[in-house]
Simulated assay, not measured.
Amino acid sequence: MSEHLPPEALDEWGAVLRERLGLGPDDLPIDVILDLAADVARGVARPAAPFSAFAAGLAAGLAGGGAEHIRDAVAAVTQLAADWHAS
């Protein structure tokens, strides 16, 4: 078995995660999460991407866990990453 998941398998992996974790279709926006990770990796540092994505998910969950909460948390982290070295 390969150590890395091919990009075309992300939807399948996402479906497995959703099922196992009891999540709905809108609870795991793969593209949004990947964009967040890329923004943090470029704007801050690559190792900051996974825990930044986790922090955004945690914040969204604590705020209620809806799609709007996910968007708000991701936007906040993305803005922080954009501003990280701008000042």
Rank of each mutant, 00 (worst) to 15 (best):
56 A>P: 07
75 A>E: 15
52 S>F: 05
65 G>E: 03
71 R>L: 14
49 A>E: 03
66 G>Y: 08
74 V>C: 08
56 A>K: 03
76 A>L: 13
72 D>A: 15
51 F>W: 07
65 G>C: 11
61 G>S: 01
77 V>C: 02
62 L>K: 08
59 A>F: 04
61 G>T: 00
64 G>A: 09
66 G>R: 12
58 L>Y: 08
67 A>V: 14
63 A>W: 08
50 P>R: 00
75 A>C: 04
67 A>Y: 06
75 A>S: 12
60 A>P: 12
66 G>F: 09
68 E>K: 06
49 A>H: 01
59 A>Y: 05
74 V>G: 02
70 I>E: 11
62 L>V: 08
58 L>A: 09
62 L>H: 07
71 R>W: 08
58 L>F: 11
51 F>M: 13
49 A>Y: 02
66 G>Q: 10
58 L>E: 05
75 A>W: 04
74 V>R: 01
58 L>M: 10
65 G>P: 02
59 A>S: 11
76 A>N: 05
51 F>H: 06
70 I>T: 15
57 G>Q: 05
61 G>P: 00
70 I>A: 14
74 V>S: 04
62 L>E: 12
65 G>H: 10
54 F>I: 01
72 D>G: 13
62 L>P: 06
70 I>H: 14
58 L>C: 05
49 A>S: 06
62 L>Q: 08
71 R>A: 15
64 G>R: 02
69 H>L: 09
77 V>G: 03
62 L>T: 07
74 V>A: 05
68 E>F: 01
75 A>Q: 06
61 G>V: 00
59 A>G: 04
76 A>T: 11
65 G>D: 06
79 Q>R: 13
76 A>Y: 07
53 A>S: 04
72 D>K: 13
72 D>M: 09
65 G>F: 10
49 A>N: 01
77 V>F: 00
55 A>I: 04
73 A>D: 12
67 A>W: 02
73 A>F: 04
74 V>P: 00
69 H>E: 15
59 A>P: 03
51 F>L: 14
53 A>R: 03
69 H>R: 11
72 D>I: 03
77 V>K: 01
79 Q>K: 12
67 A>Q: 13
65 G>N: 12
79 Q>V: 08
76 A>G: 10
70 I>C: 10
78 T>E: 14
50 P>Y: 00
63 A>K: 08
65 G>R: 09
51 F>Q: 06
58 L>R: 05
73 A>Q: 06
75 A>T: 04
49 A>Q: 02
50 P>M: 01
69 H>T: 09
57 G>N: 07
77 V>I: 09
74 V>D: 06
64 G>L: 06
66 G>H: 12
49 A>C: 02
72 D>F: 04
52 S>C: 11
51 F>R: 07
73 A>M: 03
51 F>D: 04
58 L>T: 02
60 A>E: 08
65 G>L: 10
52 S>Y: 03
76 A>P: 09
52 S>A: 12
78 T>H: 12
55 A>C: 07
66 G>S: 10
74 V>N: 01
78 T>R: 14
67 A>T: 10
63 A>D: 14
55 A>L: 15
61 G>K: 01
50 P>W: 00
73 A>P: 14
52 S>P: 05
